[in-house]
């Protein structure tokens, strides 16, 4: 059997890189969040650990390792551990189909900066993301705590409700692009314009749904401290709690990456092909562009969190079902009609 060891090595490096970057981004998102909050609320935020408190996330992370691991006596031990693990694994898996950049050419080998370019990338993301609900459900149920259970049920029905609108909003995009491969969608934007120009409504719906999917404010009903004492991870401590928190930030990171790729051109940036730069440099610049976009989105996530109050549960569900879904359908139909009209005339 002729095994391409270089390929495997390449992929392993890429995967490790992506995972590390995800974790780092997640860690520093916590820092960013506190900083953004402090700026918005006109205070200073973390500033003790290192410059501008930049070592704060490391300290927090390290602390989680050394905290006592408590598994409540009446909980279901196996599921209690499985819940956060699943949440984390799912969070780590979604990054597999995001194109982090174009191809690099090193020593005659062309290296794609995408872990797996499968032709059903979007479906893959949907599939993996919907597994994330299990992490939350299992954690909440296994804790055998009334708050946790209620929170996890809330979270689950919120996530599944917004998944519908999310799926529908993407269909309009797919009608235009005609492919499910994220890489191809990005490539199309590289040559045409960014999709957000043609799909503003679709983007807005997708954005709102991403907020809901990530349990971010204003949709963080499952973590509503004032009523639920911290939500589905109420009983969790040490790294298991850390996993839930990390998973949430990684999810945010990935949805930012996804939104960037689907609607904002991903790793493409204006005039990238007309500058006449070396391909490798373009690729690196593209990756940088992608990360800038991602950081903008992350900032937006945080901005919203500290600006908009939380929805009431019925408002949240009504928004998801009564407005988002019909809106997404209408968007789909209008897009379809326009695309067809333009292609036949």
């Amino acid at each position: 059997m002729n095994i391409d060891w270089f390929f495997i090595l390449e992929k392993i490096v890429l995967i490790s890189g992506v995972l590390v970057i995800s974790l780092v981004v997640a860690m520093y998102s916590t820092w960013g969040e506190r900083k953004v909050a402090s700026i918005i609320q006109d205070r200073i935020g973390p500033n003790r650990a290192g410059f501008m408190g930049l070592l704060q996330p490391l300290a927090d992370g390290g602390k989680l390792f050394f905290k006592e691991e408590i598994i409540p006596g009446s909980s279901n031990r196996f599921l209690f551990i499985l819940g956060p693990s699943l949440a984390m694994i799912v969070a780590c898996m979604t990054s597999a189909v995001i194109p982090w950049g174009d191809t690099l050419t090193i020593a005659g080998h062309s290296i794609s900066l995408q872990i797996a370019d499968i032709n059903i990338g979007i479906l893959y993301i949907f599939g993996v993301v919907s597994l994330g609900v299990y992490g939350i459900m299992l954690g909440g149920w296994a804790s055998n705590n009334k708050y946790s259970l209620l929170a996890s049920v809330r979270a689950a029905s919120q996530i599944i409700s917004y998944e519908l609108a999310m799926g529908l909003s993407l269909i309009a995009l797919l009608m235009m692009t005609g492919t499910l491969s994220i890489k191809e969608i990005v490539e199309q934007q590289r040559h045409g314009g960014w999709n957000v120009l043609y799909q503003p409504l679709g983007f807005v719906i997708f954005l709102v749904c991403s907020f809901a999917e990530c349990n971010r404010t204003p949709f963080d009903l499952s973590e509503a401290e004032s009523e639920l004492n911290g939500g589905y991870h109420l009983e969790y401590s040490s790294m298991k709690l850390g996993f839930y928190l990390f998973a949430e930030y990684i999810n945010m990171f990935i949805s930012s990456a996804l939104m960037s790729s689907l609607y904002f051109g991903g790793y493409s940036f204006p005039f990238m092909d007309s500058l006449g730069l070396a391909p490798n440099l373009v690729t690196i610049l593209g990756t940088a562009a992608l990360f800038i976009k991602i950081i903008c989105f992350l900032f937006f996530f945080m901005w919203v969190r500290w600006t908009i109050p939380r929805f009431r549960y019925d408002q949240l569900m009504r928004l998801g079902w009564n407005y988002m879904i019909p809106l997404a359908l209408a968007n789909m139909l209008v897009t379809g009609a326009i695309v067809l009209y333009r292609s036949t005339h």
Partner: peptide, 25 residues
Amino acid sequence: FPIVLQLIAALGFVGITMLATHFLG
């Protein structure tokens, strides 16, 4: 195939971290 690799990586990361926190705390 790369997805399988990533799955292994993710499982490994989660497993090791879980064990670490179990023994460290």
